[in-house]
Design a protein around this nucleic acid. Structure first.
Length: 424
RNA sequence: GGUGAGGUGGGUGAGAGGCUGAAACCACCGGUUUGCUAAACCGACGUACGGGUAACACUGUACCGCGGGUUCGAAUCCCGCCCUCACCGCCA
């Protein structure tokens, strides 16, 4: 969430910027500011009353110690009214405080100035394209048919074992998955990311820290007996490493990478692009996360984009980088680049990565701060993350784009990881 | 699943109704000393939200796992919850 200080100092800016996200904030901002003033006044009143009470209590203690029991008891009589007063003032304060909070969490992050206005994915801006075009012959197959033909993925079996959206990879399909995971992790490590193996299940605090809770609760699998959630992305456990910490500025940026299975209920998205690997309830992903100094976070974002780009290049996939428009961005993001690869048989662009700078928005919830020599007070760090990369759609594109009459050709970089050159 | 112990500042750990936002030690930071390093010594050393300031200073309140209660006054007493650790049982 945005900090109240920022809103207080830049109310018009907030309203103006959120228009880019098609969010009308004018009323909420107005209300927040007026409640904030009330809150401060209420706090002053309550604090003053408490100060009086504290003073009086100290005096009573002194009187008792000096043996002046009568005077002490007399003073005691004056406390009940004060006490009641404090109760009321406290209640007033916390009810206003709560209201401010309720409003604050409704405000999305303000977009970076370079974010284009727009409503839907149609308005996103392609900032870069790369990779060579793929020419397929007339009898080319979509990846779900290739997967079946070469016995790589058994979707039906997944349905038997679990349900739709939980495919079973087998044989070379399974090995290809493992190869990709190792390749992505090695690449990340070479780019300076520390590898993490996080828990795949997190508690409520963590879900809240990265913003999945409370609003997007329905997107996660919830283990109700223990009140834990299956992670929808490694971002959740990895970023929460930095929850409630004060870092040293000289240690920034922190760079972590993690492979994890990701679990998403995808409630409400049935029937839309769910064929084959396009949308799953469980999939594999390697994530990269950075905790950066606010002055450096956009450099870091570019670095992360470059890293992801190098991956799709090495996999020899046709790709494009898209800067999301305000309407297509997530609630928490200030700037997001999506990576899409061309899936030649489906003749579709598939999103395989989303790289975002959340600035201080997520850090504010997480209470992820740092301290430098110049400032006594800790300040909020910037958090960033990106997929590097999500596997299923990469697999889909690899299968479709590399199909030949002899079989499916594995890209050179993956051959050492796979241990085979062709799927046939 | 059973039994027991315990949650205090960055860490160890004292405190058992008022003089405790919290001893002591360690770590970190600043300084003195030193050819350099180390040691020694001195000093500073939590967070949040207010007030205050150009900014500091200064100052009020809250915070000893979380939430209630008792009391003029709670880290300390009472109740509920959460979590951690140890041992036993089961198990990868």
């Amino acid at each position: 969430m945005l900090t109240i200080k920022f809103i207080q100092e830049n109310p018009e800016l907030v309203v103006e910027k959120l228009k880019v996200k098609n969010f009308d904030a004018s009323e909420i901002v107005h209300e927040i500011l007026s409640l904030y003033e009330q809150k401060n006044r209420a706090q002053q009143n309550a604090d003053q009353a408490k100060a009086e009470m504290n003073k009086l209590s100290k005096e009573i203690g002194l009187l008792f110690r000096e043996g002046k029991t009568d005077e002490a008891n007399q003073a005691k009589n004056r406390t009940s009214e004060l006490k009641e007063n404090i109760r009321q003032l406290d209640q007033e304060f916390s009810s206003i405080d709560e209201k401010v909070y309720e409003l604050l969490i409704q405000l999305p992050n303000i977009p970076n100035e370079s974010v284009p206005a727009g409503k839907t994915a149609e308005d996103n801006k392609v900032v870069k394209s790369g990779g060579k075009n793929v020419e397929l012959s007339g009898d080319s197959l979509p990846h779900w048919e290739l997967a079946q033909k070469y016995n790589l993925i058994d979707f039906e079996l997944g349905v038997k074992l679990t349900g739709a959206g939980f495919p079973v990879y087998r044989g070379k399909g399974s090995r290809l998955q493992r190869a990709l995971i190792n390749f992505f992790l090695d690449e990340a490590r070479n780019a300076g990311y520390e590898e993490i193996q996080p828990p795949l299940v997190v508690n409520e605090d963590s879900g809240f820290g990265t913003g999945q809770l409370p609003d997007k609760e329905g997107q996660m699998y919830h283990v109700t007996v223990d009140n834990l959630y299956l992670i929808p992305t490694a971002e959740v456990p990895v970023t929460n490493i930095y929850r409630d910490v004060i870092l040293d500025a000289k240690d920034l940026p922190y760079k972590n990478t993690a492979y994890s299975a990701c679990f998403r209920r995808e409630a409400g998205s049935y029937g839309k692009d769910v064929r084959g690997l396009n949308r799953l309830h469980q999939f594999d992903k390697v994530e990269v996360v950075q905790i950066a100094h606010p002055d450096k976070s956009y450099e870091v974002l570019e670095e992360m984009v470059a890293h992801v780009e190098s991956l799709v290049q090495k996999l020899e996939l046709p790709y494009r980088i898209v800067k999301l428009c305000g309407g297509d961005m997530s609630f928490t993001s200030a700037l997001t680049y999506d990576f899409e690869v061309w899936s030649a048989a489906q003749e579709k662009w598939l999103e395989v990565s989303s790289v975002s700078n959340f600035e201080a928005f997520q850090a504010n919830r997480l209470k992820c701060r740092f301290r430098d020599e110049n400032n006594k007070k800790p300040q909020l760090a910037h958090t960033l993350n990106g997929s590097a990369l999500a596997l299923p759609r990469i697999v889909a594109a690899l299968l479709e784009n590399n199909q030949t009459s002899e079989g499916i050709k594995i890209p050179d970089v993956l051959v050492p990881y796979c241990g085979f050159e062709m799927i046939d």
